[in-house]
Design a protein around this nucleic acid. Structure first.
Lengths: 198, 198
DNA sequence: GTTCTAATTTTTACGATGTAAATTTATACT
DNA sequence: AGTATAAATTTACATCGTAAAAATTAGAAC
């Protein structure tokens, strides 16, 4: 009987390929990454990746999944920061923005259009994991009496605001005249004021 | 001496090619559109477009430019709607969102990452035209005493919020459980309250 | 009206990509 | 050792962006 790849070997190869993909994405952008190049990075023949990923879409889904898990971890680490509710909420929002700017390629991959995340349950799990903390930190504010309303709705409102601001910055739409942190201050100030119970 | 293309002929060909590109983008997505296919749509040989566009990037810039001009027109039409300042501001925001959902491909092309808009002055002009109305409708609110602060900063805060919400919806991140208009209501309510002078 | 000339268009060509199919290689069991 | 067969590689094909060569064509000059 022939050699059979163990689950560990398969997982290991996939990890190494995703490593290379992350590296190439960060360096040269999404467009510049091909399965053939990734095979080259692993010093393996061009078609070998197809034994470990059904197609490019599945490989991209794996990269996105890892991105979401890293992102979720960053948010969770910020969430358990000791301090008051507003301090912890600020820490989570800061972590969100810091992640986006430290890993713009990963953030873009995770949140750009062209989704196709249906059919990749692990991607869905990772993405929901990240959303969980984004709702939890809003609940802190509500529990403290600093916000009133449906935590899920408010969380999505905050998410939209942060996401939009980050995307505008990442796509260069803010220009050089508009300071990110200043807009951010105005936006958050308004949202926090606007969400306070009457 | 040989035939020489008139400016009108060049403009006409470019228009027709951009028409086809818009149509194909809307139908089959960004990935599925190639200069060769567009040539096919115009019943012309595959390389002919290169006489009218330096390369694919320049063609994409032209499509984005038209998108921004249409978008700006939609905002301007809403802006001149008769009514109170809040009514007109609402009309502009509505027009923004309606455009994004009626032309998701165009919106994505305009606002997704992968910009390269440097070097395409007409694109910059069209994009600035759209931004102008987005600031103007905020000024209406300020003049009415409904908002206080720097109009440019506030406009960018509103822009980020709308853009983020639209992008979350377009990329399927809101899921089926979260109603767009409900989140939108919460977000706008909070922003408008939060931006009111003390 | 024929011929010439240069702009326009088409054809051809090259490297790269995603991926399917055929082929080769290597290993575990008899 | 020999063989079945999973894994890996090689080959192949359609498509892409685009450069270069070849063919076409429309007006100027005669």
């Amino acid at each position: 009987m022939p050699k059979v790849l163990s689950a560990a070997e398969i997982a290991d190869f996939r990890e190494r390929l995703i490593d290379a993909a992350e590296r190439l994405f960060a360096e040269k952008g999404l467009e510049a990454v091909s399965l053939r190049q990734l095979a080259g990075e692993l010093e393996v023949s061009p078609m070998t990746p197809y034994r470990y990923f059904k197609d490019k879409d599945e490989m991209l889904a794996a990269v996105r999944t890892r991105g979401f898990d890293r992102f979720a971890q960053a948010l969770e680490d910020a969430y358990v920061t000791p301090g008051s509710a507003p301090q912890r909420a600020t820490a989570v929002a800061d972590a969100y923005i810091r992640f986006a700017f430290e890993h713009p390629a990963a953030y873009g991959l995770m949140f750009d259009l062209c989704d196709n995340q249906t059919g990749y349950p692990d991607l869905v799990r990772a993405s929901e994991r990240a959303e969980k903390t984004m709702t939890a930190y809003i609940r802190l504010l509500i529990d403290e009496g600093l916000a009133g309303g449906d935590p899920i709705l408010i969380a999505h409102a905050f998410w939209a605001a942060i996401h939009g601001l980050v995307m505008l910055k990442l796509s260069g739409k803010l220009g050089p005249k508009i300071d990110f942190d200043t807009v951010r201050g105005v936006l958050f100030q308004a949202l926090i004021r606007g969400v306070r119970p009457a």
